[in-house]
């Protein structure tokens, strides 16, 4: 697989390590009443879809940026790559 890095251009996926579902960008609120249930779901439960999946890849052997890659899990085709930082900001995370 080739990941089209927004800053560095096409890079071999072997340079990256994989974390998983990009929903992990959003940590639950630790002060919420149901924080235990929310953190259990955050830490352990996954949608695991067959089809398009937004997921976090880390360019470990490159510029060490985190990317949000949209990839079809049934074909491995990559349709979108963005810097995770930009995605997080656009989705309202402060830091």
């Amino acid at each position: 697989m080739i990941i089209n890095h927004p800053l560095l251009g096409p890079r071999d996926a072997a340079e990256f390590t994989y974390l998983g579902d990009a929903k992990m960008i959003h940590r639950p609120d630790w002060q919420a009443d149901d924080a235990l249930a929310q953190f259990t779901a955050y830490g352990y439960l996954r949608d695991n879809p067959a089809g398009p999946h937004r997921e976090l890849w880390f360019h470990e052997q490159g510029d060490r940026s985190w990317l949000v890659v949209t990839r079809d899990t049934t074909t491995h085709e990559i349709t979108d790559v963005q810097l995770a930082r930009d995605v997080a900001r656009a989705e309202g995370r402060s830091k």
Partner: peptide, 16 residues
Amino acid sequence: SGRLMEKAGMRLPIES
């Protein structure tokens, strides 16, 4: 497993 149990509204501690 994920694909099937989704039809029962469940999310699993599993990735395929």
